[in-house]
Design a protein around this nucleic acid. Structure first.
Lengths: 239, 239
DNA sequence: CGCCTCCTTGAGTAGCTTCAAATTATGTGG
DNA sequence: CCACATAATTTGAAGCTACTCAAGGAGGCG
């Protein structure tokens, strides 16, 4: 039995989780760098991330680094959009050691046929992904490196906090600077310099697989961060 | 009675359109610059775009220009994601004179309760939007100005062609250069220079409200364009 | 015609990239 | 546990891309 993770799946109530979780008996594991699914694969199941970090990547030629177009945290579906779409436009890559619960599309199909409200909740969860995509478009199009990286780290903080229920001043952080670069549209060299700037501003520091947040308010200000676009289940934000 | 537009709604079959269209008796019009709905508004209906162009914009302070995070073409829903989300994270702005068909969420709710397949089709249409968002993240993060604008124009061409069924070498184009700038994360000055480059390369030219495509293959190459991410209904592409 | 908006062009510069090398972390086998 | 190999980060210097500021031109509309 899969115990209910926090985070995105908090959009589901206990009854809804009670219906969904029995369909996710098969658990799986991936190592850092494993490709969970390839662009264009025909998928017959989706995965709920239980632990670790997964990226959606768009490959760009063999020489260039691929772009990270999305990041998934524990409690989020990694590829729920494959249920209606069947084939994805991007790769799904495990960035850390990850653990996932698998749900077959056939099972999901039958379950959702009998529960319109649950279907709408899953729809909503994919729409929150889309809202985050829009924010990434804005961030990578309209923000300068310092604000961009700060905002990225704010989002990491917020989603990680939601996933592991409870705000901390130091969180596990297993992204490499080149991962941040791929997600923010910068070079890893410039990410390095930008993280130094954030450190020297007294906002936060990344080292030893930990993100230490020294001044959350300052970091939010520097990244012009407003969490509304994350549509957090239990938050009382404006949206 | 709303006659079925081409484009995104081609994902629906005739029967499904037959069920949906009677709910869209109210038609509306907007002028260029009209704000169709504001960020955070509580929405009780969604709009299908019949003619014109609509942008989803994230406002960024009062001084700076707002970022265009998405563009909607005829045959696409402008804010279908408001059905599950209720409140949106962005403004919806009419860029041209537009005509829309309105569908109340209550009506949609009842219709979808009785038709799981139709519900899944509408879900799918919002997921295509999300796929396009991901492409925009990639484009604005990883492409240089020339490729970026070329790719943007390729997308415009493809979606416009789908909306008005039939490939043409000259299409109506009512975006200003500052709109292209807001959508691509460039300045309007640089868009002007970039369009000149594309013109001098013999790819395409924008003038008098028309986009003239002189060398579609060359434009696609310059923008590294692959339409798979658009999940066109009747296309036989790999995805 | 005069006004306003949009587009174009030029000059100077900031921000980020590229390339390359040095330094520090991480992991592995003996 | 150390020595080594590999991967990740940091720093420096030089260059290019795109931005900013500013002025001039073109077109549309009252």
């Amino acid at each position: 039995m899969t115990s209910k993770p926090s985070g995105m799946v908090d959009h589901l109530n206990a009854e809804q989780w009670g219906k969904l979780s029995p369909l996710m008996m098969h658990h799986g594991h991936f190592a850092p760098g494993d490709i969970v699914s390839h662009r264009g694969d025909l998928l017959d199941h989706s995965l709920l991330l239980l632990d670790g970090l997964v990226a959606r990547k768009v490959p760009r030629g063999q020489r260039a680094r691929s772009t990270v177009v999305a990041l998934q945290f524990p409690g989020e579906f990694v590829d729920l959009h494959a249920f209606p779409l069947k084939k994805l436009d991007h790769d799904v890559v495990s960035l850390t050691g990850t653990s996932v619960a698998r749900i077959a599309h056939d099972d999901l199909h039958h379950l959702l046929n009998g529960d319109v409200e649950l279907a709408r909740k899953l729809w909503l969860m994919t729409l929150v992904d889309a809202s985050i995509h829009r924010h990434w478009v804005m961030r990578n199009s309209a923000m300068r490196a310092l604000a961009r990286v700060a905002n990225f780290l704010c989002e990491y903080d917020a989603r990680m906090t939601a996933a592991y229920a409870g705000e901390r001043d130091s969180l596990p952080f297993s992204l490499r600077q080149s991962d941040i670069a791929d997600a923010t549209g910068l070079t890893s060299v410039h990410v390095s310099r930008t993280l130094r700037d954030l450190r020297e501003h007294g906002c936060c520091s990344v080292s030893g697989g930990q993100l230490a947040i020294h001044d959350r308010a300052g970091l939010h200000k520097m990244g012009m961060f407003d969490a509304a676009y994350l549509y957090m289940p239990q938050s009382g934000t404006a949206l």
